[in-house]
Design a protein around this nucleic acid. Structure first.
Lengths: 341, 341
DNA sequence: CTGTTAGCGCCTTCAA
DNA sequence: TTGAAGGCGCTAACAG
């Protein structure tokens, strides 16, 4: 006879049962869509539910069924299209699987570890993006107590990884630039900031090796616009000699291009510039930015899917799944622009 | 003596208590950071917690404290910087308030109403963006049973609204274009798609009225890139005569500009184009896009804040709060570009 | 400072 | 087809 009132906190299963003149078990059955309830009883219950505007309490259900029915997703931040696409793919697939998504951003949190521990308290599993903003200790601590999937990262014991292809396409991209006759390529981005950029640099190096060339050391920079301007300034000042900049992402490449033009340099004639991600701006700028497109949305969906698989079964996948990427050739590398683009 | 084991589902407060040789109440106190626990007892408990890798079950806590400690956020989708910024602001502020955020996207859901009802099951309140993708019935149904805040929408009974300024800045923007001598302005966007675009069109009309001019009817179009190309095609084909296009957002404006240039028109000489949002691309294109910047991130933070206020107290705010926007003049309206920009 | 004891709202056998 | 009753794990009085 508990909680029959529920005036303050809303209706409960008890108040609905009372109103419909049935037991709470019957109400529960109706709400679960059980077929072992007579039509008229079902109707009475439904009526009571609507009259009382009954809304079950998720926490109570979770406690009883021993599932949160929620996926946690941890991202560094959300600027740029990459994270958004990823998130859209993740949310969409999670919803299809009947799971809600609890989002957490690392940016601005002084203690990400603590925040994640609290997140882990309310979800059945966590997907997270490998990134310098998210310490390695996070997945390590989580693994073993909760299912974990890392995106764009590396598998560890008890941690499944999924990613998009980096090394091969970076090699193809670099080879393409070399094929334009450039010989003083510079890679801009920090290989230590995460496995994806590390692999892109590896591809950069590999393309050089194929031609018996020696790749320059990477220019370690973050991927913000401001870093791009600084990088371009170094080129303009003659500190950095290069005829082709292979940037770790598009934002960096675009910022570099802009500042270079302001400084009087012509892309691609004086200097080729290529990026990674194929953001919207890449096809709006002049010249169009040559870059690599990743199936980011699919990556997000796959993350939700794999996480769910790990939660529901002990469906272990050993090899990290790799989604293919695609070279997008425009004019910034030296190609002739497609007049129809 | 329940759940002392917890081998499958992880440690529970009972197993921790048993291991530490104390009662569950003490464990609870330690975990809550109560100061009425002796240092040595606290230590014993903490040790047990770590050894058992104990992780409290959020659902159980929620049930006991009668709070989910979570905010729901419903957005149409996530493409473009607007939603991302909003979400970042929301998440950040919610986290500061100790609330996790459960995100739901309307896009792709055949029954948004049902989805939202299920969302309402697991959060203490819901913030949502007013949008055609989210039927009005949603906030209406929710109101009364859960605190609701609508973003960029209108207040209703039991529904608080917050928004950014639209009408006045749209008027200022339009007046600016008129001051360039243009007289055949066309507004592109659907005033019925939501209150914000409706208000922008209202500002567009008001600026005309100030000059005793008659504003043209809006060209109703959605805000996608493809719609921009179609719109530009109509101009190129001579179907639509205009000397200035006032677009409801930047993506539309940018797509229009691009196609116009491909068609041989010069912006702003042949045709001025202005947008709304100040997306990244707006300052990368040539000419730079004149637009209006909104404090989107602050808007998101405010949403979380107001929602929390409504959840914790019955802190009712009647007037809908309006955040100021800012005109960003670049060259696409006919202004002389700033050489330093 | 610590332990006992009720619930919180829902699900799920087990009987009837 | 329905009801009774016992948890799910945690918090919060209330005693000691």
């Amino acid at each position: 006879m508990a909680g029959t009132q529920g005036q303050k906190g809303g209706a409960t299963i008890y108040s609905v049962a009372e109103r419909a003149g049935v037991s709470i078990a019957t109400v529960s059955r109706v709400l679960q869509g059980s077929d072992k309830v007579s039509a008229k009883t079902r109707q009475r219950v439904m009526t009571a539910v609507e009259e009382l505007r009954y809304m079950p309490l998720g926490a109570a259900r979770s406690l009883a069924v021993r599932h949160h029915e929620a996926h946690g997703l941890l991202l560094p931040e959300l600027s740029g299209p990459y994270y958004s696409e990823l998130l859209m793919g993740f949310e969409s697939r999670a919803a299809e699987l009947g799971q809600s998504v609890v989002l957490m951003l690392a940016e601005g949190k002084d203690d990400v570890g603590r925040a994640v521990r609290s997140l882990a308290t309310r979800v059945d599993g966590i997907a997270l993006l490998a990134s310098a903003a998210i310490p390695d200790s996070v997945p390590e601590t989580l693994a073993g107590s909760k299912p974990v999937v890392v995106i764009a990262g590396e598998a560890k014991p008890d941690v499944e990884a999924i990613t998009t292809e980096n090394a091969a396409s970076a090699k193809a991209l670099t080879a393409h630039v070399l094929a334009h006759g450039r010989r003083r390529l510079v890679f801009a981005g920090d290989p230590d900031s995460g496995p994806d950029i590390r692999d892109r640099y590896a591809g950069f190096v590999a393309a050089h090796e194929d031609l018996r060339l020696t790749a320059a050391a990477p220019v370690r920079t973050d991927l913000r616009e401001s870093a791009g301007a600084e990088l371009a300034d170094r080129v303009l000042a003659g500190e950095l000699t290069t005829d082709a900049l292979v940037c770790a992402n598009d934002e960096l490449a675009l910022a570099v291009m802009k500042r270079l033009r302001q400084g009087g340099r012509t892309v691609p004639d004086d200097l080729a510039v290529v990026g990674w991600d194929d953001v919207m701006t890449a096809r709006y700028v002049e010249p169009g930015l040559t870059t690599v497109r990743q199936p980011v949305r699919e990556l997000g969906a796959l993350a939700a899917e794999r996480l769910h698989a790990r939660i529901t079964s002990a469906d272990i996948v050993d090899e990290t799944q790799v989604l293919p990427t695609q070279l997008v050739l425009r004019a910034s590398c030296g190609c002739t622009p497609d007049p129809l683009a």
